[in-house]
Design a protein around this nucleic acid. Sequence first.
DNA 1: TTGTTTACTTACCTGCAAGTAAGTATATTT
DNA 2: AAATATACTTACTTGCAGGTAAGTAAACAA
Lengths: 184, 184
Amino acid sequence: MSDTRQDILSLGDSLIRQRGYNAFSYQDISGKLGIKNAAIHYYFPKKSDLAIHIIRATHSRLSSLEDSNKSAPALQRLKAVIETYTVSHKENKVCLMGAFASEFFSLDENVQQELRTVAADIHKLVTTILADGKKNGEFRFKEVPKVKAMLVITNLLAGLQIERITGKDEFTVIQQSIIKDLTT
Amino acid sequence: MSDTRQDILSLGDSLIRQRGYNAFSYQDISGKLGIKNAAIHYYFPKKSDLAIHIIRATHSRLSSLEDSNKSAPALQRLKAVIETYTVSHKENKVCLMGAFASEFFSLDENVQQELRTVAADIHKLVTTILADGKKNGEFRFKEVPKVKAMLVITNLLAGLQIERITGKDEFTVIQQSIIKDLTT
DNA sequence: TTGTTTACTTACCTGCAAGTAAGTATATTT
DNA sequence: AAATATACTTACTTGCAGGTAAGTAAACAA
């Protein structure tokens, strides 16, 4: 895979998660990379094509994370998931689901479909981690794992969003609260 | 205040929370209201003016809610807050903070400022309700009220966002979990 | 060495978003 | 009755977003 293609994907991801999908144009990418708009259309004919490939790249990173920690303790696996949000936090980005959710109904059907797949996978992943942790005594919580997973995910997702409005570091304290809540 | 002005504000609010701020244009409003784009510019010269007035309207509804329930039990006051999210849920809308957060860095400085004010007020309101409820024994939770408030708000905000991606009714179960978590 | 593929650029087009300026009909005030 | 304000419309302008089609230079393959 060419460098240019990767650079476009990477910059596109940053722009979507920093400023929003409908707020950036191919010009933002081509300008920064020193190429022409048509070069981006060469790799990704439509903006929705770019979106889909960015979503898939994120999905595949998620799968790798899942695989590489498969047999680790639940707490470590949860921390690995949370760490991906922490990285976003440090880069003043929201997560990809959070970035697209608000504009979801303005998106192409095939982009929506791609997002549904990833969202379901994230939920499944966190649910499994929480269920495993509860079973082996690492975690303590009252809700069923599926619901608790949703509560944890919403804390992380919206934590990234709200902190950019308030300007305060809400995320760090949220992250710590999640772990503490589950382990004590 | 004229009907048209109100209709513009109301439709603008719906569009922002259904499709996103950068995804709608004055055409979407003028078309539906049977007026011309310039009529909207007459009331709100710039799109950011419209945004600001929509945010202020929401803020003032929040303040009314706050006032009308001032001396009620904490649980009732919390339910009143949650109810505003439930209304959004039923209309397939996200909340205003959630709608703007993803595109925050693409917004005019004065819109950003307006959002900061409201976000701070929402957080303050929920914090007060939780603190009161903890003090008088209505609520039980380990975190300091300020942090617990943030956790509750993130559950609600992102609950609305995620359910539109997954297509499932995540919100209702989240809402119930919040109450149950606090009261048992 | 010729042909083909890759990775682009040049040069367009189309449409719409955002905004402005000037005009007009209808109330409202003086 | 005349002047003024209100609530718009008509008629623009500007710029950029999104996309296409055709050309081209370099790499590579037959």
